[in-house]
Design a binder for these strands. Structure first.
Lengths: 200, 200
DNA sequence: TTAGTCCGATGACAAAAGTCACGGGCTTAG
DNA sequence: CTAAGCCCGTGACTTTTGTCATCGGACTAA
């Protein structure tokens, strides 16, 4: 019997997956969690064979949970995500996850992937993997990404500068460089572009 | 037998719901669609008893589909949505939908709601309904909302002006009014706030 | 009718944002 | 060692935004 922990903040998909997986003779859902923190504590307490973790969750995201679980609990993590960006896959692999699956795939495949992963194999969605290999490294320096992140909610130059302990002029220089590299003309467009590529 | 059309751009939840609902003895899934346009054509062709429509879909959203179906096909629409904002509910009710259900609810309830709706009743999620009644009309005029919408991707004043056939100064005045009413200091913050409240 | 509100517009002004050139300190690769 | 690249900062400059006062036209409610 494969003991599975299921974490997804969306109740409908969580309960639907739980119901479907419970129909499988060799799979048992031992916990359902609505956020990352809860998933972490449950996983530590129950030591499931496999953790099926949604990426987008309030508080800790799925990859955060996998990373923290890595050295403490001998469990295999599968990340499931709505928007499978290369950046997310890279983060997930760095966190040592055993599986990576976008939600565009059908629910039928989930049980099979859980079996593979429980058996020691890894499963990475081929399409996302191809995307990630074919590149899309951010053309921005790490500091420029910091600035972009700090300003992603429409913060003013002064606010960004304060939150990063920088001079306003420095922030403006970074932003100017960002806009040039991304060939856009406002911060907001830069933020949107970067989010779409999974750079921030 | 209740004939149901299912539309959701997320493959995993679509297939999971289809599998679960097919287990019900009195429910039959006659179509699965991945976007609004497809849902519309299938619904016209198949004339299902109930359409279960995701709100967030590329192209036409679920409410758009329901609105267009309204006068052409005698079917009852249920809108399912991830972020159940009051604005979305209002739009949905205006489009004459028979049911409204956030995805935070469990999948178990879906079958029962389909039965209720097929039987002629309406189902509106009580929590969302309470939210919608208790508050949150946009403090902006309709023209201000247009401007905000036109600028939601970080468009420049000139671009907004062109897309609405306005003078740049007019656009700036509207934006100035918006920022004052919303007590924020940048367009981007205004856009984010308005999106969170479902005003745009 | 009148007052109020919204729309569109203009002009003037202040504040932010963006561009450019340049400097010094730091680390890394050749 | 040197060159290159990044980081942080400054100062000067232009452009874009945001604010304000004001105007006329359309519509609505009292």
């Amino acid at each position: 019997m494969i003991r599975v922990l299921l974490a997804d903040d969306e109740g409908m998909i969580r309960s639907a997956l739980a119901a479907l997986l419970s129909l499988e003779p060799d799979i048992e859902i031992i916990a359902q969690c609505a956020d990352g923190q809860q998933a972490l504590t449950e996983a530590v307490a129950l030591r499931p064979d496999v953790c099926l973790l949604d990426f987008e969750m309030p508080g800790l995201d799925g990859v955060d949970v996998a990373a923290r679980l890595r050295r403490t609990v001998p469990t295999r993590c599968v990340i499931v995500t709505r928007h499978a960006r290369p950046g997310v896959l890279r983060r997930a692999l760095a966190a040592g996850v055993a599986g990576f699956l976008p939600k565009t795939r059908g629910a039928e495949e989930v049980a099979e992937i859980i079996r593979q992963v429980a058996g020691g194999a890894r499963y990475i969605d081929p399409e996302v993997a191809a995307d990630a290999l074919s590149v899309d490294r951010p053309p921005l320096t790490s500091r420029e990404l910091d600035v972009l992140r700090a300003g992603r909610r429409g913060e003013t130059t002064g606010q960004i500068a304060r939150s990063l302990s920088l001079a306003p002029g420095t922030v403006r220089n970074h932003i100017s460089a960002i806009l040039a590299k991304l060939s856009v003309s406002t911060r907001q467009q830069a933020v949107i572009l970067a989010e779409e590529h999974g750079w921030i």
